[in-house]
Design a protein around this nucleic acid. Structure first.
Lengths: 198, 198, 198, 198
DNA sequence: AATGAATGAGATTTCATTCAT
DNA sequence: CATGAATGAAATCTCATTCAT
């Protein structure tokens, strides 16, 4: 039972720390030195495990993507009604992104988009989310709870709105405020704001 | 009638170019050299007009904030119904952000938030938007077109959803697709997705 | 009358020092730091004048090529007989290469041949020398002093032999020894080593 | 009968690979990692067999020197006439150097000359060659085939010319072209280029 | 008002070498 | 024997900033 067992591998440690630092300071402003210092390693040692800075970033992005998806799938499947599923999806997504800041940021910063793995990740993720939402909507329609003209377009519109949520989290909005906000949003989503005639 | 009149001031030119470059490559990845080269100036000359790189950024942010607000106010006031006003607001905001990428990005990147002027700008802008939305909602209620439990919360929820739109634009979604998407979003916003019983 | 007048330009100074250092330690073993220190400049200042290390090397090679050719042309044209011309060519070439070690080395080291400018330089130079030798040989033939089966092949053979001279200089053979050696070589070149029958 | 018997010793394997790599990329540009990777060994394992990089190089040089000399001696002794011996010497030397690039390069690169074993090798080799040539020349004189004023100087001149041949091989001249070139060179060497009066 | 020149500080990366196992 | 891991030292290169003119 070595210490490594606890340390779960230097490579993972590096990814873990890098994840935090990239999230806090961005890719360009996080230095290899920063990462090494955080781990009490020599700068050169990082290069034993990773080809270069970009390679670390790639791993971070992939890891965050994997976890984000897993968490969302789990949370959604645990819910019964389509309304609850939608809420679980949004909330989990929000909480995930809060932890997975890099994943999110990678899709934003123009210069990061030069990296092909960023584009791929972003496309795959969009596909994943769109499918998830469509599934929930169809499930709701089958259960007679939802009705809408075009499922695909509605899914896209919802995804768009959801992306607004990520925006919020960058500012450390307290969890409670967010949940309240989310409820209102869902209310609007389910019932609209227009007066129901008759 | 100096040449400056035509050139509308070197300072403004610098801001203009910086705006573009920051938008494209981010603050950290845009160099003073880049800015100078684009203007066919010497790097050192930039420092005649600006204390440092950060100062240029500050001006860019302020300018973008001013313009964004102006454009939104104008577009909203030109519309008649609250629905139209909301649509105009979202669309204008979207188009503005497309041009004012820095304004938007500044609010995202963690390390940029160390700059106090970024925080201030972001707070002021949030206030501005929240007020605008509330005004539209109240206007809709007064006209008997909208109904909702809590105007403040609904305004926040809408703002949140709107932020999702900014997210989209980073990926050069074609305008037509966006407008269609917006219509669906507005439809959901106005009428919800839940089946109307009876 | 500025100091620069005497200093004949920092760029040239850098080339001059780099030329010496590259000659002494080779391209790989000469550092930018070495060059900067020799000039009492900051390392970064070198980069003000040159894009990178390779760019300095390129200039050094070009300069040495230019000077080498000029010196050879001058020396050869000052001589009257073809024998004297050949001797002048070889001797000047030798002395030039002694000073222009980089030019010579560039053609040797395998990894330097990755640089296209090295290949170009080497080809251009070979062409130059081959033409020069052919001209001298033809001149000798016209004057009735030389005879040979094939001028082109002979020129190539002589060039090959001449390249042997470069080899010597790397070991700081004293000039007098070399001149004596050269005379013997020329003697062999002119008269051969085979016994003349009859 | 261990596996080592087949592998003829790890040490020799290392030398063999190092020989190739040094030849291709030069001493400075060949890394221990390169050598290890080529052998599918760990970098650290190299240090079990060799004190340091320089020690590998020393062995490479020594090995190449040994083989080069052996091959030359063998080739020369197999020929009958002094002319044939000279040709055999030059051709074998050329072919040897083609394979033994390090041996040759070591004598060139300034910074390698800091290593005493390089200087020694080079001196011993020069002595070896000079003696060989002198022997051939004397043999030719005894047989009444050669005549020359000073055997020692002529030997040095020939050696010098021979060195030109090494220069060629760096550029992958095809064998056939080289042999043709060599014949012309030998022709000049034997009979000179001056017109034979009478 | 403008800039050429220069630089300090720091970033990424490379590599020979060591050491514990 | 062999090697995974680690690192010091150094190399290349970048860039915001300063300064003299």
């Amino acid at each position: 039972m070595k210490e490594q067992a606890i340390e779960k591998g230097k490579k993972e440690q590096i990814i873990k720390i890098a994840q935090e630092l990239f999230a806090r300071f961005g890719f360009a402003k996080t230095t290899i030195e920063d990462i090494a210092r955080s781990l009490r390693m020599a700068k050169a040692s990082i290069y034993y495990y990773f080809r270069n800075k970009e390679a670390i970033y790639e791993e971070v992005i992939k890891k965050e993507g994997r976890i984000t998806k897993d968490e969302i799938i789990k949370a959604v499947s645990e819910q019964e009604t389509p309304q609850q599923k939608l809420k679980a999806y949004i909330l989990t997504r929000f909480r995930a992104f809060k932890k997975m800041a890099n994943y999110y940021t990678a899709f934003k910063e123009e210069y990061l988009k030069n990296y092909s793995f960023v584009i791929e990740a972003r496309n795959r993720y969009r596909e994943f989310e769109l499918n998830l939402i469509k599934n929930i909507l169809n499930y709701g329609i089958k259960r007679g709870e939802f009705e809408m003209e075009d499922v695909d377009l509605t899914a896209e519109a919802i995804l768009t709105a959801m992306n607004g949520f990520e925006y919020q989290f960058t500012f450390d909005t307290p969890e409670e405020e967010l949940e309240r906000n989310l409820d209102t949003l869902l209310n609007v989503l389910f019932r609209g704001i227009e007066k129901r005639k008759g």
